[in-house]
Computed example of a mutant assay.
Amino acid sequence: MAEEVPTGTTAASGTRPLLIGPGSGPSPPYPYRMSGPVISGFGRGSKELGIPTANLPVDNSLTPWISSIPSGVYFGWASLLLPSTHPNYAPASGATWSLFPMVMSIGYNPFYKNDTRSAEVHVLHKFDADFYGVDMRLLVMGYIRDEKDYKGLDELVEDINFDCEVARQSLQRSGWRVKELGDGGEFEGGWLVEGEFEGEQAEKASL
Rank of each mutant, 00 (worst) to 15 (best):
E120H: 03
R137M: 05
E147P: 10
M104H: 00
A92I: 01
Y132V: 10
Y112G: 03
Y112M: 08
D128F: 11
F111T: 12
P87R: 01
D130W: 02
H125M: 07
G76L: 06
Y89L: 00
A129D: 12
R117C: 11
Y150S: 02
A95S: 15
K113Q: 15
M102I: 12
N109S: 13
K113R: 15
W77V: 01
D128L: 15
L138V: 12
T96V: 14
M141K: 04
I106V: 15
A90P: 00
V103L: 02
R117K: 15
V73Y: 12
E120C: 03
G76W: 06
A119G: 07
I144L: 08
V103F: 06
Y132S: 04
T85D: 12
D149L: 02
N114F: 14
R117L: 13
D115L: 14
V134I: 12
G107H: 00
M102N: 04
S79N: 01
K113H: 14
K151R: 13
Y89R: 04
F127S: 11
S79G: 07
S93H: 02
P110K: 08
K151Q: 13
V140S: 09
T116Q: 14
F131P: 09
V103R: 02
G133T: 06
G94W: 00
L81Q: 14
D128I: 07
S105D: 09
F127N: 10
L99H: 04
Y74A: 03
G152R: 12
F111M: 10
A92H: 00
V121R: 03
E120K: 05
L138G: 09
M104W: 00
L81N: 11
N109L: 08
W77L: 03
P91L: 07
S79R: 01
L80Q: 13
Y132K: 06
Y108R: 13
M141E: 06
M136E: 11
S98V: 01
R145I: 03
V140F: 09
L139E: 13
F127Y: 13
T85Q: 11
N109G: 04
W77Y: 02
R145M: 10
V103G: 03
L124S: 06
L81S: 13
H122K: 09
A95I: 00
Y132C: 09
W77A: 02
Y74E: 05
I106N: 14
Y108A: 05
F127E: 10
H86Y: 03
A78G: 10
G133K: 08
Y150H: 03
R145C: 08
V103S: 11
